[in-house]
Simulated scan of single mutants.
Amino acid sequence: MTYHRWTDNDYRQLAKLVQLYGRNWRMITQYYFPDVSSVCLKNKYYTKIHKNAAYDKNSQVSDASNIQQYQSSEYIIQQLKEIMNAKMM
Rank of each mutant, 00 (worst) to 15 (best):
M1Q: 00
W6F: 12
T7Y: 04
D8H: 02
N9S: 12
D10W: 08
Y11R: 13
Y11W: 05
Y11Q: 07
Y11V: 00
L14M: 03
K16M: 07
G22P: 15
N24D: 15
N24P: 05
N24S: 15
W25A: 08
T29R: 08
T29Q: 11
Q30M: 01
Y32I: 01
F33W: 02
F33Q: 00
P34E: 01
D35C: 00
S38Y: 11
V39I: 06
L41Q: 04
L41H: 07
Y45R: 03
K48E: 08
H50Y: 10
H50T: 02
K51F: 06
N52D: 06
A53Y: 04
Y55T: 04
K57F: 11
K57R: 14
N58F: 04
Q60M: 11
S62F: 04
D63I: 10
D63V: 07
S65K: 10
N66Q: 15
Q68S: 15
S72E: 08
S72G: 12
S72D: 14
S73M: 09
E74Y: 03
Y75H: 15
Y75V: 11
I76W: 04
Q78F: 06
Q78T: 06
L80S: 09
L80K: 11
K81C: 07
K81F: 04
E82V: 09
E82T: 08
I83A: 12
M84C: 09
N85Y: 05
N85K: 05
A86C: 10
M88W: 03
